[in-house]
Nucleic acid binder design. Structure first.
Lengths: 339, 339
DNA sequence: TTGTAGGCGTTATCAA
DNA sequence: TTGATAACGCCTACAA
């Protein structure tokens, strides 16, 4: 953390000389081997590292691009993260979005600790992912100084690209009810994500209003990965079984399907399944999973593109509600619904 | 891209005044509404955005952390990316690695275009992922000014955390040969990644030296995703069938298994499968997949931690070869090997 | 109510 | 062979 100045003082030379030596132009400028060595030694002793900010400031104008921060929640599933970044990368490499991208991990509900959001000394704009209800409340009240785009949450105050999570859950309940199912269940991740919570709420309230019974043991929360889904599914096999199951996160369904298949549960005859997300896995389980599309890549691209617009001076918030159409596959074929 | 200075000139006031107004401290310092408005208008017209580098420089010392860049190849599969970042995030949030992380997408074989690697004006160190053979050659010859850590490639010149890809491919061939299989095949992604190429090479040369026949139509390259695997598998079902199949990337195997299962291929009786990667999916297909572990998260953590060490003045390259033990599952049970 | 000046760490230019 | 200085853009204390 030493600066050129400190090194110069310690070595008894001028700042300029130190700079030259440390940048390997000593030969070029014929610095004496003696001073050169002295400087190198002192630099090592003082643990010198160039200050990135200063360098960039110096080269200002050359190719300076706006800096955007991507706030990335701790419990954002890695599978979604991959898809999210694919969308971002596509915009950068193919649509020529010129920006510096810094990634900032944070723990859910601790968004307010991220100083740079308020003081804006480290980025020109930000994309927020995976924020919790508590974070949402913070954002509603906060006075941020930089433009912010919110991924997969609705927030009137900022540009946001989101889906109707509550409605998605409700839709699943409707499909099950319309197909004559009577005993529904839910296997969900135990995370703070507000979108997950909404999907669960929509589903459970939908079941209630449509006369679908949800036994307490048919409402399970587990670790957000395939293993969690498998365990929850296995546990559910032990007691009375539901005939319809909703997964607010499709990843967990992949593990569950494997458990069901091994246990000889007939899908969809004995058990209909609808999942949310439509990531690639859900397409290649056997049986394949009926799923609602969460267009992660597209939403991520939009986040970046709109943020760049905001930075260019666009004044208005732009938000968009993405539809989440159902892709019918084997675990809940469309004709079952029509029956 | 306008600066305070330009705005000040355009508005006919001083830089300090502009700064105050634009930072919302106009009330506090009682700037006249008139000048205030004028400044705001001009700032908007001139499309002002604070210069991040200048701000950070100004606040130097407060909480300045080293900046590291993560170079992220275009064709790095999103599934691996998620796992990679999980490892990184773990180090940052739980091991307290203090750093600014910037993510830099690049196209494979165009690493040399990334100016900051050579001129190092934008980061203090870098982690390189998914680099191609051509990039490797560039790195061998380049004189980089910043410490660099290489993910999943071996490079004597730099710290690198890698596995023995060639040996992994060979090991798969050995396992097949030892279990009495005669006709091997390969379904691989069509990417430039040098680790994929090595795994294929190791496997094919292993097959040859061990007397396993690999028909031309049993060596297939397809898009690196589940769909690609499924298509390649379906195509392979049409002609003569191999009795052993290696997937240098497990993702593709997931799609393939679904095709095989639907076609009634008995696994492992008719067809043994070994995959590489051991991502979660490979565990939850039916049948589950025998797989070699690629410890992505652990390797990513090490990359970050060693890079931080290098920045702290550690002088020596640290590299590590990770073992890739085989996890035997249903697609190639261990006892089959022993027979 | 507004302007001026100094300094954050670097590098380049010019002078010695 | 080396030192001094200006400039990059911003913020703040102080002066006017």
């Amino acid at each position: 953390m030493a600066s050129l100045k400190e090194i110069a003082q310690a070595a008894g030379v001028s700042i300029g000389t130190v700079s030259v030596v440390l940048n390997g132009r000593a030969d070029e400028l014929r610095i004496a081997k003696q001073t050169r060595d002295r400087i190198l030694v002192v630099a090592k002793e003082l643990d010198y590292h160039p200050n990135v900010a200063a360098r960039r400031l110096r080269k200002a104008g050359e190719g300076s691009r706006p800096t955007i921060a991507i706030f990335w929640a701790n419990d954002f599933p890695s599978e979604l993260l991959g898809r999210f970044f694919s969308g971002i990368q596509h915009s950068i490499l193919n649509k020529g979005m010129q920006c510096e991208m810094i990634v900032q991990p944070f723990r859910p509900s601790e968004l307010h600790l991220a100083k740079q959001l308020a003081t804006d000394d480290l980025c020109n704009g930000a994309i927020l992912t995976g924020i919790s209800d508590e974070d949402l409340r913070f954002l509603e009240e906060a006075e941020l100084k930089i433009p912010v785009v919110v991924f997969n949450r609705r927030l009137d105050k900022y540009s946001s690209f989101y889906v109707d999570d509550y409605e998605a859950g409700r839709k699943a309940a409707e499909l099950f009810a319309a197909s004559g199912r009577r005993h529904a269940g839910l296997i969900a991740p135990d995370v703070e994500s507000s979108s997950i919570l909404l999907r669960c709420k929509g589903f459970l309230e939908g079941c209630q209003s449509l006369g679908l019974q949800v036994l307490p043991e048919h409402e399970r929360y587990a670790v957000l990965n395939m293993g969690g889904g498998q365990e929850a599914a296995a546990a559910m096999l032990e007691g009375q079984r539901p005939d319809a199951l909703f997964f607010p996160n499709g990843i967990m369904a992949v593990g569950a399907v494997s458990a069901f298949q091994r246990a000889g549960v007939r899908i969809p005859e004995d058990l209909a399944i609808i999942t949310y997300g439509n990531s690639e896995h859900e397409q290649y389980t056997v049986p394949s999973l009926t799923s609602m599309i969460l267009p992660v890549e597209e939403m991520a691209s939009s986040c970046l593109e709109i943020l760049m617009d905001l930075l260019k001076g666009r004044d208005m918030n732009v938000s968009r509600l993405y539809p989440t159409p159902v892709i019918f596959r084997e675990s809940f074929p469309e004709h079952k619904y029509k029956v």
